[in-house]
């Protein structure tokens, strides 16, 4: 399909996984040959921007071919608050389930990274901004508990601008405590947790499991923090400095261990696992 003559809203619509022959870099806006992007793992060859990926693609890039085994639990969000607003939560769920083919914003399972067995959870920022409600909290917690049973390291790749999912109210907030409590048990079992942060990881996700990795790895220039930059600007009534809350800023302030390019991630995680695996 030609991209000429597209109505503007379609061109500017956020698409993390562009299809078609040409794809637009969400960083510099240049059109890139999609085949080329697939070769570079969706890192823009022009500007180096790490284009957001679906959870499935992150798993494909990190986990050895044929070793990934998705957890069998089919969990779907209830609507415990019967949340209405501009659009009912139930409809939002349905729309994003259709759009992404996922039940909710996380995929969990087990697999190998260059031969090292791991348990892994990956959030998908295309599903209600990768936010954590009951399903994300429950699946991650079960995955961590499984890792303790099987004595395997845990990897979680976070891509969540949404934090704790507003539409499930306090249920979502409590998933922060739940995932952290499970990681506490993992720690008691002397098993490692490597937290991998991608653009964006904010709010309730960053203020829970994503922050308590034994090692915290981030993709370059990912937005990472507690409060969103717009809210901070409104609160302090001044412009934020360039690069604020980006991976490099966090590294500088001692909040993360390493920044790793996407193309290096698999090898780096394997090296870490070589040191930390039980």
């Amino acid at each position: 399909m030609s991209w000429f003559g597209f109505p503007r809203w379609k061109l500017t619509k956020k698409r993390s996984m562009p299809e078609g022959i040409w794809s637009k870099c969400t960083g510099c806006g240049k059109l890139i040959y999609t085949k080329k992007l697939e070769e570079t793992l969706y890192v823009c060859p022009e500007c180096g921007h790490h284009i957001p990926l679906t959870a499935q693609r992150r798993i494909d890039y990190l986990i050895d071919k044929g070793t990934f085994c998705e957890d069998p639990w089919r969990l779907r969000a209830n609507d415990p608050l019967n949340f209405t607003g501009t659009k009912p939560y139930k409809e939002k769920l349905k729309a994003d389930q259709k759009k992404t083919g996922l039940d909710d914003a996380v995929i969990t399972g087990s697999g190998k990274v260059l031969g090292y067995g791991v348990r892994i959870g990956v959030t998908d920022s295309n599903f209600i901004m990768g936010s954590m409600g009951s399903v994300v909290g429950e699946k991650l917690t079960r995955m961590i508990e499984k890792a303790i049973d099987e004595r395997r390291p845990v990897l979680i790749i976070s891509g969540s601008g949404g934090g704790a999912r507003m539409y499930e109210g306090l249920y979502s907030l409590m998933q922060m405590a739940k995932t952290c409590a499970a990681l506490g048990l993992l720690r008691q079992a002397n098993l490692p947790f490597i937290s991998i942060l991608t653009n964006p990881t904010m709010a309730g996700v960053m203020a829970s499991f994503a922050s308590v990795g034994d090692v915290i790895v981030a993709e370059p220039k990912a937005l990472i923090g507690f409060t969103g930059p717009r809210v901070i600007e409104q609160t302090i009534r001044q412009k934020l400095p360039e690069g604020f809350q980006r991976s490099e800023f966090l590294l500088e302030h001692g909040m993360i261990d390493i920044i790793v390019e996407r193309s290096e991630l698999k090898a780096r995680i394997a090296s870490l696992l070589d040191y930390l695996s039980p």
Binding site: M176, A177, C180, A181, L183, G184, R187, Q188, A203, M206, A207, S208, F209, A210, S211, V212, G225, F226, T227, V231, I232, T235, I236, L240, P241, F244, Q245, H253, G254, M255
Partner: peptide, 26 residues
Amino acid sequence: GAYPGIGAEERGQAESIARNLLEMSS
């Protein structure tokens, strides 16, 4: 709410909360 400011972010507002959740659970 926890304070939304530059210093708070620089010093790891998110991490300080997350750490407490993990520690308080045990």
